[in-house]
Write a protein that binds this DNA or RNA. Structure first.
Length: 553
RNA sequence: GCCCCAGUAGCUCAGUGGAUAGAGCCGCAGUUUCCUAAACUGUGGGCCGCAGGUUCGAUUCCUGCCUGGGGUACCA
């Protein structure tokens, strides 16, 4: 049993034994104190009870302690501290049991069945193929993939999807940009306007056109060929970038298919039947005011072209129809206004909008030293995700994007990432993992037989106990990160775990009797078990982040 | 105007209705005949944006304000 649950149970029964009202205990929490020396686990129950009973919290705490019936297999010590906290110290036996559990679980340590196999879709990136993925897309790609990994680890059946539209104005401009570069390469006069895409990749695509078609398209106004050529080339590029990041999409969903399959018309018909659509000023409007919004929205322009809202609604209805139990959408903060209408429309069509979880992440501001770099795909003054990975590698790239909460703006200092990448905390965690491997190798080389049963109760140094404690909370961290869709909690935890391991191994430098590999067969075997458990936790955690766990550095 | 996100150490950022608010980088001082020093130890550094309110207790919750970012399109 989890120690927190056990403690809460003990508090409830002690409270009722003491004749106090247990009803307010649901407000009490069992938590880990942030200060060392305050025990391993603390409860504020006495303070809650005291405010209810209008009496002294420390006295209540004493009453509870007098009525405790604690199992020494779990709890070694109890004390009252501060304004009335009850601090519990875990028994070593509890830690040993947990340590053995980690080894037994192996790669599955940290995973859970919380999701119950829920069919889950995660939609992210969803950039139209007008150019290479930028650093901004990179944040979303890494966040999305990691949220997906977290959900997989907690018992969800996850499907990664990329939604795109190759029919809009952006794509026409893209095709025209290629056409103009094509003419330019043929020596014709061609001028790209401010609105055209000016990146070098456009010229490369135009060169492909020359290789394929020579100058045969010189006098043609045909855009479709250029558009398709560009779309194809750019998508290939995007897929390569994604694969460098270490994952794949299960599907690229083209908005166009919603028109071809009639899904757009179906949605229009359903909304119409519900009386939620009307015509005005030549356009078709959705009565979002009937759904609690402050203004109605155009879904079909007077030109006859739908706005993004209609296909977005149809796409989300399609997700519902495909039977997903959970739909996670990941958007940049510039899309923050687009989803409430979609959810409202789903609701109006009698779908359960609670199945949709929208995650909004803030922007990446690219810094070159102290200079802010303005990024625009059109003006081609962006740094691509590929260039970033060329500079610092995939592991650092992923770690950088995952290290911070998604609703914080991310200041990405390019010069720092390039020149001081050695000081990136990702190496700190990876190095701890490499060290565990190294010690285990060393023990084998010294002829220690690691296959025999070790007596882990020999582990009792403060560094050893502290390390065990932190390894034991890993599953809670994974659950929490998944439940809150907060990938950044994993790197934060891993840095702490790595730190505890570094201290544990360093202890042997200061006090030779604490070295992992010694002549003492018994302590060596026990400490190697702890190293193996640490290696598992670090490797599992890094894998969850899509970051490699090197055996040597 | 209205809506969303943020404001915490010199910098980049964690954190939380509770005990003395943390980490990394940067500064300073140390640790290796040794399982990787990509490490460890010590130390300096803070009106947790401002002002009210709720609470036994607020950096955390509520209200207002200030600053920055993003929305508020018949762009996506």
């Amino acid at each position: 049993m989890k120690i927190n649950e056990y403690i809460q149970q003990c508090i409830v029964s002690a409270t009722s034994r003491a004749g106090l009202d247990t009803s307010c205990l649901s407000k009490s929490t069992v938590s880990t104190p942030k200060q060392k020396g305050h025990g391993d686990v603390a409860s504020n129950a006495a303070m809650i009870l005291a405010s209810q009973a209008r009496s002294n919290p420390r006295q209540i705490a004493q009453t509870l302690i007098d009525n405790f019936d604690l199992d020494p297999a779990y709890i070694a010590d109890v004390s009252i501290a501060g304004p009335g906290f009850i601090n519990f110290t875990m028994s070593n036996d509890y830690l040993f049991e947990g340590l053995a559990g980690i080894i037994q679980m192996g790669e599955n340590y940290g995973c859970s069945q919380w999701g119950g196999g829920a069919k889950t879709q995660v939609e992210f990136v969803s950039a139209n193929p007008t150019g290479p993925l930028t650093i901004g897309h990179g944040r979303q790609a890494v966040l999305g993939d990691t949220v997906a990994r977290l959900l997989e680890a907690t018992g969800h059946d996850v499907f990664r999807e990329y939604y795109f539209n190759d029919a809009g104005r952006q794509m026409r401009v893209l095709g025209d940009s290629v056409r103009l570069r094509y003419l330019e390469l043929l020596g014709e006069d061609a001028v790209l306007s401010e609105d055209h895409y000016q990146g070098e990749y456009i010229r490369d695509i135009a060169q492909t056109a020359i290789d394929e078609k020579g100058n045969s398209l010189k006098d043609s106004d045909e855009l479709e060929y250029f558009k398709k050529l560009a779309e194809h080339a750019i998508f290939e590029e995007i897929k390569r970038t994604i694969s460098r990041l270490g994952f794949e999409f299960d599907r690229f969903f083209n908005e166009l298919s919603l028109y071809e399959s009639g899904k757009i018309d179906e949605v229009k018909a359903i909304l119409d039947r519900k009386g939620l659509i009307y015509e005005s000023e030549g356009a078709t409007w959705l009565k979002t005011t009937d759904m609690g919004m402050d203004q109605d929205r155009v879904i079909i322009k007077s030109s006859g072209e739908p706005t993004y809202r209609l296909p977005d609604i149809a796409y989300h209805r399609d997700k519902m129809e495909r039977g997903f139990d959970l739909v996670v959408d990941i958007f940049g903060s510039d899309h923050v206004a687009t989803y409430p209408d979609v959810l409202a429309a789903l609701d109006a069509m009698d779908y359960d909008k609670a199945k949709v979880k929208v995650l909004i992440h803030q922007f990446v501001t690219l810094m070159e030293g102290k200079e802010k770099v303005k990024m625009s795909t059109r003006k081609a003054n962006f740094v691509t995700l590929d260039e970033l990975m060329d500079e610092v590698g995939t592991d650092v790239t992923r770690y950088f994007f995952l290290n911070r909460s998604m609703n914080s703006h991310l200041n990405f200092d390019l010069s720092l990432a390039k020149t001081e990448s050695d000081e990136n905390p990702v190496y700190y965690v990876q190095y701890a993992h490499a060290r565990t491997c190294s010690v285990i190798r060393h023990a084998e080389e010294q002829g220690h037989d690691l296959s025999t049963e070790a007596d882990i109760t020999l582990l009792d140094a403060p560094e050893e106990l502290a390390l065990m404690k932190i390894l034991l909370i890993y599953p809670d961290i994974v659950s929490l990160a998944a439940r809150e869709y907060a990938p950044h909690k994993i790197p934060t935890y891993l840095e702490e775990a790595a730190s505890a391991y570094h201290r544990f191994q360093h202890a042997g430098k200061v006090d030779a009797s604490l070295r992992v590999v010694t002549d003492n067969v018994h302590t060596t075997a026990a400490r190697i078990v702890l190293c193996r458990a640490t290696r598992l936790v670090l490797a599992n955690g890094l894998h969850l982040l899509g970051i490699s766990a090197p055996e040597k550095m």
